[in-house]
Design a protein around this nucleic acid. Sequence first.
RNA 1: GCGCCCGUAGCUCAAUCGGAUAGAGCACCGGAUUUCUAAUCCGGUGGUUGCAGGUUCGAGUCCUGCCGGGCGCGCCA
Length: 583
Amino acid sequence: MKLIVANLINEALQSVPELLAAAADLDIETTVERTRDASHGDFASNVAMRLSKPAKKNPRDIASSIIDALGVNPMIASVEIAGPGFINFHLSPSAFHAELKFILDAGENYGRQAKKDAPKILLEFISANPTGPLHVGHGRHAAYGASVGNLLEAVGYPVHREYYVNDAGRQMDILGASVWLRWLEANGVEVSFPSGGYRGEYIREIAAEIDTATLVPPAASDVLAGLPLDAPGGDKEEYVEAIIAKAKSLQGDDGFDHIRQQSLESIRADIEDDLAEFGVTFDRWYSEQSLIKTGRIDDALAVLESRGMLYRKDGATWFPATKFGDEKDRVVVRENGVKTYFASDIAYHFDKRERGYHYLIDILGADHHGYVTRVRAGLVAMGYEGDTLEVELVQFVTLYRGGKKMQMSTRSGEFDTLRQLRAEVGNDAARFYYVMRSNDQHLDFDLDIATTQSNDNPVFYIQYAHARIARVFARAGESGMNWDQDNGRANLGKLTTSQEKSLMSALSRYPEIIELAAKNRAPQTLVHYLRDLVSDFHSSYNAHKVLVDDANLRDARLALYKAVKTVVANGLAILGVSAPEEM
RNA sequence: GCGCCCGUAGCUCAAUCGGAUAGAGCACCGGAUUUCUAAUCCGGUGGUUGCAGGUUCGAGUCCUGCCGGGCGCGCCA
């Protein structure tokens, strides 16, 4: 709808040569915006103010010459200059009627667009370590990433969703050792559980579930022999290492590997199930182990080497990250020959580009922000443009219950899991609450509010509008007043109340909101819009009865409500929230 | 110490490449249902946008400094 106004201004500029030159660098569409105040019309353009400097003329004079040059358009009712030089456009009712018909025609596709030559986007999110179930913080990543992916698809980008599984390295050994000890415990072999191990109850469950048929538990004396002291009194890392070494020597490398891989897969599969129930799915689960096995890390390091982007010092191999703005150079291969996590990460991003994704979005926890510079540095050093990696940081979530802050920590085993949260507040409320705030704001998640089914709870407020409309249509059928859509379309001129006008205007904003939310990676923009939209709906609903005797008015109102129902459902779908027919 | 994010009504938060009189919800006060779902609506109270400068037609938004909060600064992952 905005385009109607932008095109009109563009045409007008064609006939004012001195302004046309000044406007050469200006995208007119960006000068057009919705007004905040209805007295300013429907759209306003600040084009005259923007041209003031390059054209060296008074904004109001410029506005005046643009208005004089405007052609006649049936969609525009009137145009005026206001304030310092705004051009205000009042749209005619027919413009809104046309949009309303378009919504009815487009249905679930309303708000979606095709984009020519859109780059394929690889969206990586969550990527939580497979050492335990997802906790409530990961839930925010899930909800945010999924919604951003939906938004990007809605505006025409092909999106590939990926979860990077950190299934290599020491933490996997710790996981394997933790499960091993719990398995021994279940077989009557008691060993002091390491303070640096994974203590959660789920470890016992995994130990009970995995296939151990080929394994024989060692004697307790063999396990205990030569073990150092755990903290306090001893070193907790040293103790964990000793346990891992014991596991490997007593079960054999193959035996320990068996336990570790089964534990890993059990947890990964559990995460996948959890997310699927939450409505969050991935196109690929990318294993770090596979990155190693396929030689991808060596490939990436070879590329860096060939470009002179590696050097040796103190027995280690370094990447000169400071050349790309990082604080210090980074080790990629340690003195002991083991590649660092950073090497994997460079290789993973290298692989993303090699697979043909030209735009990468990583959604990371705010605590990873120090990582952004060096990963980008890695890409640049390999010859890729740094601005094709975008990182969105998600701030922390704090759970509140009864006004009290709750503690969350993975290793201590005292965390609240995403699964627990979903069970308590429901998927819809959880998805909604997670994206209600900007990702770069800390989120206070109040369990008491999310669980109340009252007007405190915005997700119900929006869903209720959808259910209410569904009920009106059901009622119409029961009362022999079935909606005659053609008649409704022919009588949209009957929608003249202030509430109906506001509602039509709000509906027509939806595509602009989707575009804005996608561009800013900001689902909360959509959340706020939906709340505003249904607020207009509830006002209209309370003020004017729909199922009136006048069939023309009735069918027109039903057309309007049908459009509201469509837009609410479309918006909620992007947020991953259901649109119930009844509540 | 250095770097990144944040600071808006009593509370939780909006605010469109920098736009017009900074808006919602909650809370508080007062009203609305013989009616299509009251999980709703209508009205009212509530602000020096952390502080101080700067940039310009115009600053919550951009720049500088300060104050306050969060996070990060490993040959960990």
